[in-house]
């Protein structure tokens, strides 16, 4: 008895010792800034002007102003549309389809397709933005191709700005989901699939009854990751459209940047970032809850 107790104590001590550095770092660099953000969002902190020297506590002023600001509502709607269309639907479905279709195909085929799709993912956002800016421009590749079938050039980023950035983000991010699903699909025991085949299940039934339920956990994890990544997308949109024309592609990160670094209202900007944080946390909790119900 006594021996095992001291052994337990030893393990406990080791756990704490090994965990300590990462706990300290997390407190310092993750929790610290979150608490600061929380505090700053209740001040009139400014990048310049008198308020930069003398920052004052202003209570809920920033939040009242935010909820009265139609641009805030527009950005929330844009953010949700962008999130659902490009991440939840776009990247998930494209990623899954590619992974599913590539399953059990010849190795060279998987390699080539995999590399092509990964290329979009490893390209830095700013480069992706420039590539697509050129591709979608008046005399860009897309309009030249459309010209072959006698379609007049379309100013994509002007006429369909949100659709364009959604499409670009799917192109950029689908590889991540593809990797997640590839790993998940490879983990499905072959015996299960073979057994269902012998029992006479068709391809559709196998996908719906066998594959999807088994990879559900991975799907939810992927959903959380992709959602958080997409909520934070800034460079791609900022470089492609700057949030415009008008406010058609202004998502919350762009709106936050404009308030904090164009209007110099840091306090207001941090208040917006807090809302973004709350949205991220709520969505993650929602997904995890969804996973637990079954």
């Amino acid at each position: 008895m006594g021996k095992s107790k001291s052994l337990n104590g030893n393990i406990y001590l080791k756990t704490v010792l090994f965990g300590l550095p990462s706990i300290v770092l997390l407190l310092l660099f993750v929790l610290g800034p979150i608490i600061m953000t929380f505090y700053f969002s209740f001040t009139n902190m400014s990048l310049t002007g008198a308020a930069a020297r003398d920052t004052q506590f202003v209570g809920f002023d920033n939040f009242i102003r935010m909820f009265q600001d139609p641009s805030f509502k527009t950005s929330v709607i844009n953010t949700i549309v962008f999130l659902i269309a490009s991440a939840v639907i776009g990247q998930q479905i494209v990623g899954f389809l590619v992974a599913y279709l590539m399953k059990q195909k010849a190795r060279p085929f998987r390699r080539i397709i995999g590399i092509l799709i990964l290329a979009g993912w490893i390209t830095p956002e700013i480069v992706v933005a420039f590539v697509w800016f050129a591709f979608l421009s008046d005399s860009g590749t897309l309009n030249i191709m459309l010209g072959f079938i006698n379609i007049e050039p379309i100013a994509w980023l002007l006429k369909f700005p949100l659709v364009s950035v959604i499409f670009v983000n799917i192109w950029h991010g689908a590889a991540f989901s593809m990797l997640m699903y590839q790993a998940a699909l490879d983990d499905i025991p072959q015996e299960v699939e073979e057994a269902s085949k012998i029992d006479g299940a068709n391809a559709w039934q196998r996908l719906w009854r066998i594959t999807l339920p088994i990879i559900k956990g991975s799907a939810v994890t992927n959903m959380v990751l992709v959602t958080l990544q997409t909520l934070g997308v800034f460079t791609l949109i900022y470089a492609l459209t700057g949030g415009g024309p008008g406010e058609k592609t202004t998502t919350l990160p762009i709106f936050m940047y404009d308030q904090a670094f164009v209007n110099y209202q840091l306090g207001y900007g941090t208040a917006i970032s807090l809302v973004l944080l709350v949205i991220g946390i709520s969505l993650s909790l929602l997904y995890i809850r969804f996973l637990k119900t079954d």
């Binding site: 400014s46 002007l158 415009g244 024309p245 008008g246 406010e247 209007n263």
Partner: peptide, 30 residues
């Protein structure tokens, strides 16, 4: 001190009129 905020709202109004998103009257109201 407030000029940067006023100025970016001017830019917003000008761009809205430029792209035809708002009429001049609507942009002024905004």
């Amino acid at each position: 001190d407030e000029y940067p905020m006023v100025s970016s709202n001017i830019q917003k109004a000008v761009e809205a009129v430029t792209t035809g998103t708002l009429t001049p009257e609507e942009a002024l109201e905004q």
